[in-house]
Design a protein around this nucleic acid. Structure first.
Lengths: 220, 220
DNA sequence: GATGAATGTTCGCTCCTAGTTAACACCAGC
DNA sequence: GCTGGTGTTAACTAGGAGCGAACATTCATC
């Protein structure tokens, strides 16, 4: 077990290098010796929780990320071949799609109405019913993609429900941070500011249900 | 520094209590002494990262949560394995579960509240929010299982949305018959009489969302 | 090509502390 | 009374968190 622990060092190193900080610089800021950082990164020693926590803070990375398997988080270049049906940058999914007149809607996977967001985020509509202010959709987050590049959180009336199909998604709701992985589900009052981010190396897919929202806002 | 570290113990205790596990039970599963757990929870000692990590895993909570100040997180109590939590034969999922007071609900796959129906049909709750008349769940139909043995159809106020994860499900809505397979989704006005049946050889799993229903009826 | 100032690494060493084994006090049920 | 559950504390120990010093390496610059 716990190869998450075993690879913690290399993961730290990987992230540190990406951040462009030198080992000695880290050591200075964490107020520990450079040699110790080296030992940690090479798996020859393990930090205390306090040290690990400061380390994560310094790299401005949620601690959970450090336990994830490393991998080259390479973001898909904006290959928007295949004609995107629609391109919006909505504050949030209230009236992403128009409501339909049909009382029954059945949609097969290759036939979904698609919205492509700027940031590597897509929504695919899963049903088109007569209900307004309801969105039932599959959401996709490419590696590194996030709800809002600026780091702003969004909030809106209503409730939001999600189920993770594949990959990992870091969900921030208020000051709560959750890691969503396959099979995990959640629901929350979406008037609480929230944002999502794919911190993992693979794409994230999830089933999302948003309803009862009439207006959307963003908050720094 | 970082009162996040200082409060780590109490945070752990808080979450453990919510999960309904005893300190000794945790100790057994983590393979450490009960006294040590106590010391950790009371801030008299600090765990190693490995211990902390296993602790978080056991509580099925992302590590980051442990560093946050306490808040209203809803964690589904350890579903006492095998013993089915509840056994009902509801006409339909309106108030299958009580609403929760928590504003945020996160449930991990092994920890869901389960309702077993007579007919090889189970519902697993995916989120427990404050909303009433809302059910977000994973539904399971064993091969041959059906909504209603008698062949009756059901209808109720509101709308119903579904996404097929695995297997096949025959969906009858009014006089329309659909075959749902992986990735297929649907939504419909649930005042239209409907019923489901697993006609395939494998079990069916799907994500289901039902809301806005206040009364349920059956119709031959 | 020597001097310096970065980088990261290894080897011992010290001392702190993660984790132990008691024994403790409490409460519920029989 | 006992037995089996809960959580807490004290005294102890072994192992490893973290250190300092010396190491090898790249670069610039003179």
């Amino acid at each position: 077990m716990t190869d998450a622990i075993a690879h913690l060092g290399s993961r730290l190193k990987e992230i540190r290098l990406k951040s462009g900080l030198s080992l000695r610089e880290i050591a200075r800021q964490l107020d520990v010796s450079p040699s110790f950082i080296s030992q940690i990164e090479n798996g020859k020693s393990q930090p205390s929780v306090a040290t690990l926590y400061s380390f994560a803070k310094l790299l401005s990375v949620p601690v959970d990320v450090l336990f994830q398997s490393s991998g080259d988080v390479h973001i898909e270049p904006n290959k928007q071949l295949d004609i995107e049906v629609n391109r919006k940058n909505l504050a949030h999914p209230t009236d992403a799609w128009d409501s339909s007149k049909a009382r029954i809607s059945s949609i097969n996977p290759n036939n979904r109405s698609l919205i492509t967001m700027d940031s590597g985020v897509t929504w695919e509509r899963l049903a088109a019913t007569a209900e307004e202010s309801v969105n039932f959709m599959e959401i996709n987050y490419a590696p590194g993609a996030e709800t809002n590049k600026s780091g702003e959180m969004i909030f809106h009336d209503g409730f939001e429900y999600g189920y993770a199909l594949e990959g990992e998604l870091e969900v921030t709701i208020g000051d709560l941070v959750l890691q969503l992985s396959t099979g995990h589900s959640l629901g929350f009052d979406s008037s609480i500011p929230h944002r999502f981010r794919n911190t993992g190396p693979n794409k994230f897919r999830g089933i999302w249900f948003v309803h009862g929202c009439h207006s959307a806002h963003t908050s720094a």
